[in-house]
């Protein structure tokens, strides 16, 4: 196993506030990782740093050994917490855009998933509900054969039925060489698919462990441990 994501003393300040402080982290390839923490703990900030949407104040973040840039963007499939779809395109036009810019995008996969979620590819993005837009975005992101998937709150805004479909989609589309990092605070929903967890609080990593270790050694579920670590 080699390292896909590596943070060395990664720090990001907004003004005087430290959103991420001196994080050291190594994520190996081939697993589904939960980046877990309460709201405002710095999960999204780390993911944005990995996507070059933010620049570190100090320290480094490396993806496959490289600093975020064009080369890393080619191998990272990113689902932001925001809906980034513009209001004038149709679904098939945005699929065309993804095929144009990402060599690893598989349009047939996207059309397949759209069909099973009953989304018409000729629909205009503008007319869709927020939940449908989130589904479209997830389909776009999971239709890439990327080395690293960074999913920021992928199940936050959708109903439980769609939630199951989304988690299955993630499981189905990910292979041994790729890595999925899911940030969320809805732990019980995704607990079953996780191999590894990173607990993060106030910009610092407080615990990293494989899920098996948590269950075997501590005799707890990830959700139970989370509640214990982040007890208010």
């Amino acid at each position: 196993m080699s390292t896909i994501l590596e943070c060395n003393d990664l720090t990001k300040k907004f003004g005087s506030k430290e959103a991420v402080s001196a994080v050291n982290l190594k994520i190996e390839r081939g697993q589904i990782v939960g980046l877990l923490g309460p709201n405002g703990s710095g999960k999204s900030t780390i993911i944005k740093l990995a996507n070059e949407l933010l620049t570190p104040t100090s320290g480094t973040i490396l993806i496959g050994g490289k600093k975020p840039g064009v080369a890393t963007k080619k191998i990272v499939s990113y689902l932001p917490e925001k809906t980034y779809l513009n209001d004038w395109m149709h679904v098939n036009q945005i699929i065309e855009l993804f095929s144009d810019f990402y060599d690893d995008f598989k349009p047939e996969k996207a059309y397949d998933m759209l069909k099973s979620l009953n989304i018409n590819p000729n629909d205009r993005l503008k007319t869709m509900s927020k939940g449908t837009k989130e589904k479209v975005q997830l389909i776009l992101v999971m239709s890439r054969e990327a080395e690293l998937y960074l999913l920021d709150e992928p199940i936050g805004g959708v109903d439980p039925a769609a939630r199951d479909y989304i988690l299955n989609t993630i499981l189905r589309n990910y292979n041994e060489n790729s890595t999925v990092i899911i940030s969320t605070h809805l732990i019980s929903d995704i607990e079953n698919i996780l191999d590894y967890v990173v607990f993060i609080n106030q910009g610092q990593v407080v615990l990293t462990s494989s899920v098996d270790d948590i269950r075997n050694e501590k005799g707890k579920s990830v959700d139970g441990l989370f509640r214990e670590v982040f007890k208010c």
Binding site: N51, E52, L53, V70, A71, K73, K74, V76, Y78, P80, K82, T83, Y84, L85, N86, F101, Y102
Partner: peptide, 10 residues
């Protein structure tokens, strides 16, 4: 928000 798409293109 559209920047999340555009600026993460390679």
């Amino acid at each position: 928000d559209e920047g999340y798409l555009m600026l993460t293109l390679p």
